[in-house]
Amino acid sequence: MSNASPGAPLDSSNDPTGDQTGRFVIQPNGRPRPLSPHLQVWRWHVTMLASILTRITGSALYGATALIVLWLGALAFGPEAYATFVGLAGSPIGLIVWFGLTVCLMYHLAAGVRHLIWDAGAGLSPKAADTASHLSIWFGVIASVVFWAVLFASGKVTL
């Protein structure tokens, strides 16, 4: 690109001195440098959403693992401790938390499979990547709803 070459004449598109577009920042050494594009200037795209969701759900699942170990501990500490745990885990707020964590798990699982396929070098065209991202998000929601619907329908969980 001619704009990028060092000797290119400055015009309104590449002159940082009179810039009013916010595309340049003054570095600590006083020199204007182009601002690196970040989240707020990108049009949201499903692959981008899927990537961010993978990280957010992964963080939530970090806490979920701690809860599972807490469950193991409650069980190992006997019936009274277990009753306390189940009382909290089975309360309406507890069930909402478990449902949310189920969505995180189902989505993160699907996203992991999607990522492994991409890592193998497959499905990397924009269209295939979009489809895989949409599928993983829908799987996360639908599989969780089905899982909990079956739990309630079988009477294993009641409100």
Binding site: L75, A83, V150, V157
Partner: peptide, 13 residues
């Protein structure tokens, strides 16, 4: 998780 759910203390053991 599906197997353990609703089984109570004895069921989990």
């Amino acid at each position: 998780a599906f197997q353990i759910a609703g089984g109570g203390y004895e069921g989990a053991l």
